[in-house]
Nucleic acid binder design. Structure first.
Length: 386
RNA sequence: GGGUAGGUUGAGCAGGUGGUGAGCUCCGCUGACUGUAGAUCAGCCGUCUUCGACUGUGGGGGUUCGAUUCCCUCCCUGCCCA
């Protein structure tokens, strides 16, 4: 193992099997991350609309940046010359870089995958760029993130079994190459499990990735077009195989409070997603029990805060009416305020989860947390807990 | 007063020189968003009994089988000249 990360389970799951939720601490070069934890996404070395003080105020202890985007612009070598990613973006806490693997699926027609790597046509100017596992690791070492991630080939969860099988086995070969290419001693390296929604492929992939000396295990290829039930089933295949594994489990790409809760319940430690920030920029905010669309007419005359007990700048200083006005006027402050709120809500939700795990009350309060997250209706929660 | 260009669904426009104008962009309404090609996208946006029907091109009148189009008249607006 690279040795740049240590993970300690502070509160293991209860022996009665009522939950796999666990409380841990991941220590990285730039600081400790209390788990379960959510990582806001800052693809272009910025969490859109926020400055570093804003990000800290949300409670974030680690953020995610993107290898592919920063390679294209402004260039990883330039960032290295300028002192590395932390210095460049003035963020002194941990950073995890995604390898660019996600762009293999998200860029769709702009890329071609072969055994050696992926060729992208830049979404910025159409130029051609080649990503291999070795290159993705080299770029991440230049960026100097706390955690680098192996280059993988995710596929849409609903893909045919043959497609999933091929991408998964290729991801395994790329995992070994990523490990072999990695040399930076102050940077951890996580490997990525694939396997789609096929239980046997998911299990095989989990065993294979776990057999390699990574510092953490990413569960990839989800947060796509699968249903929550399918996703949870995939987790119930993968996580038990990692039960005795000493490393953190990171479910890539999840997002909504309800999804985070269900995944923690099934043993996941780390998350990232653009969802809270994107939803915020598009005018909607999370509140206990659901979400509000601030562009709705009814908020124009609403003097109340978005959420009574929220410590964020939006809720403590402004009314729903004000931010509703800002969204209509397309004022830049709207995006900042709403993003601050949704990230604060998400990170506060994770803090509540951690508190409950520590207190040993997590199984007892899952229903209450589901209600807060807004996935189930009040009656559904009552029914489930009855 | 004379000349001239115009008056199209909340706003701004397109189109239409005799054969059924509901087309665009804003605005407005609602929804979606999950390892960010996203401060984006989608649906709706005259009325109704909504797989359809009706109404609508400044007002009134005329010609015609049929008028947004041609004729008369009036009203309103911009610009130019007095």
């Amino acid at each position: 193992m690279a040795g740049a990360a240590s993970f300690e389970v502070l509160t293991p799951p209860p022996v009665d099997g009522s939950t796999r939720a666990r409380r841990g601490r991941l220590t990285l070069t730039h600081g400790a991350v209390e788990t379960p934890q959510f990582m806001p996404v800052g693809t272009n070395a910025t969490v859109k609309a926020l400055d570093p003080d804003d990000i800290k105020a949300t409670g974030a202890s680690i953020i995610l940046a993107n290898t592919y985007h920063l390679y294209l612009r402004p260039g990883h070598e330039r960032i290295a010359r300028l002192g590395g990613l932390h210095e460049f973006m003035s963020w002194d806490r941990p950073i995890l870089t995604d390898s660019g693997g996600f762009q293999v699926v998200s860029l769709g027609d702009l890329r071609v995958v072969d055994e050696d790597g992926a060729t992208f046509r830049s979404h910025l100017d159409g130029s051609l760029h080649r990503f291999t596992p070795e290159h993705a690791i080299g770029v991440q070492e230049a960026l100097g993130s706390d955690v680098a991630v192996a280059f993988d080939q995710p596929v849409t969860p609903s893909s045919p079994r043959a497609v999933v099988a091929e991408a998964t086995s290729r991801t395994h070969r790329w995992a070994e190459r990523s490990l072999a290419a990695h040399s930076r001693a102050d940077q951890a390296l996580f490997g990525i499990v694939q396997g789609g929604l096929e239980p046997d492929l998911r299990a095989d992939s989990t065993r294979f990735i776990a057999s390699l000396p990574f510092d953490g295990i990413c569960i990839g290829g989800l947060a796509g077009d699968e249903t929550p039930e399918q996703r949870e089933a995939a987790l119930e295949v993968a996580v038990p195989l990692l039960e005795a594994d000493p490393r953190p489990r990171y479910l890539m790409g999840l997002g909504s409070p309800a999804d985070l809760l269900e995944a923690v319940h099934r043993g996941v430690d780390l998350f990232d997603s653009v969802l809270p920030a994107r939803v915020a920029r598009n005018g909607q905010v999370w509140v206990p029990g659901g979400r509000l669309n601030l562009r709705n007419q009814r908020f124009l005359d609403d003097p109340s805060p978005v959420q009574e007990d929220c410590p964020c700048i939006l809720c403590t200083r402004f009314s729903r009416a004000y931010v509703a006005h800002l969204f209509r006027a397309k004022e830049l402050l709207a995006y900042r305020l709403a993003t601050c709120h949704n990230l604060t809500f998400t990170l506060d939700f994770m803090a509540r989860i951690r508190f409950a795990i520590e207190a040993g009350t997590f199984p007892a309060v899952v229903s209450e947390l589901r209600l807060r997250a807004g996935r189930m209706s009040a009656s559904e929660v009552a029914e489930k807990s009855a």
